[in-house]
Amino acid sequence: MVAAAHRISRGSDFDRTLKTGVRVTTRDLVVHVLPLTGSTTDPCGPRDPDVATVGGPWLGLIVSKTVGNAVIRHRVARRLRAAFHQRRADFRIPQTMMVIRARRSTVELSSIELSEQIADALSRRRVREAFDPSDRQALR
């Protein structure tokens, strides 16, 4: 599971990731990834100083009522946290924020299937370019 220290809990961090991060969609998830590098210009301003900027990656979840009732939403959230935990080593930059929006179809998926979709999202070209802008020229 993902420790509480690795969860995005502040609205400003959610907003920052949703507005400036790279958005990738998979069959059942919408994933927003934001590597926190010093060279990134962020229109939301600097990150709050009282929040640690080491020891990431951090995870934020959006599991709305369209997914199901409270029991189902919590089950989906637990599976997403377990899937994220399995994929923590896939982040090129540890100081990364990821917000995952669950779609209705995630109800039927296991943690392993969700983990595969997170890995698929992290392997997409747009995300790789966000982690390393020098990849942009190498990939073309």
Score class of each variant (00 low, 15 high):
Arg79Gly: 14
Ile112Glu: 15
Arg103Ser: 01
Arg87Cys: 15
Ala70Asp: 01
Ser134Cys: 02
Asp90Val: 04
Arg88Lys: 14
His74Glu: 10
Val107Ser: 04
Ala89Glu: 11
Val71Lys: 04
Ile72Lys: 07
Ala130Lys: 10
Arg124Pro: 00
Ala82Trp: 00
Val107Trp: 06
Met98Cys: 15
Ala130Asp: 06
His74Lys: 15
Ser105Phe: 01
Arg79Trp: 01
Leu122Glu: 13
Val99Phe: 03
Leu80Cys: 06
Ser111Asp: 10
Asp90Ala: 14
Arg73Tyr: 11
Ser110Asp: 14
Leu109Tyr: 00
Ala70Arg: 13
Arg128Glu: 11
Ser110Thr: 15
Ile112His: 04
Thr96His: 04
His85Glu: 12
Phe131Glu: 12
Asp90Arg: 15
Arg126Phe: 05
Val67Thr: 12
Arg101Gln: 10
Ile118Cys: 02
Ile93Glu: 06
Ala70Gly: 08
Val76Asn: 03
His85Lys: 11
Thr96Trp: 03
Val67Ile: 13
Arg101Lys: 12
Leu114Gln: 01
Ala89Cys: 09
Met98His: 02
Arg126Asp: 13
Lys65Leu: 13
Ala77Gly: 06
Arg104Pro: 02
Val76Ser: 09
Phe131Arg: 10
Ser111Phe: 03
Thr96Ser: 10
Arg92Lys: 03
Ile112Phe: 01
Arg73Val: 14
Arg78Cys: 12
Arg75Tyr: 02
Ile112Met: 06
Arg101Gly: 04
Leu80Pro: 13
Gln95Arg: 11
Arg124Phe: 00
Arg124Leu: 02
Ala83Cys: 11
Asp120Ala: 11
Arg79Gln: 13
Phe131Gly: 08
Thr66Gln: 14
Thr106Ser: 04
Ser111Arg: 02
Arg78Thr: 10
Val76Pro: 03
Ala119Tyr: 00
Phe84Met: 10
Asp135Tyr: 07
Arg79Pro: 06
Ile93Phe: 00
Gln95Trp: 04
Val99Tyr: 08
Arg87Ser: 13
Arg75Leu: 15
Gln117Phe: 02
Ala119Pro: 00
Val127Thr: 05
Glu116Thr: 08
Gly68Gln: 05
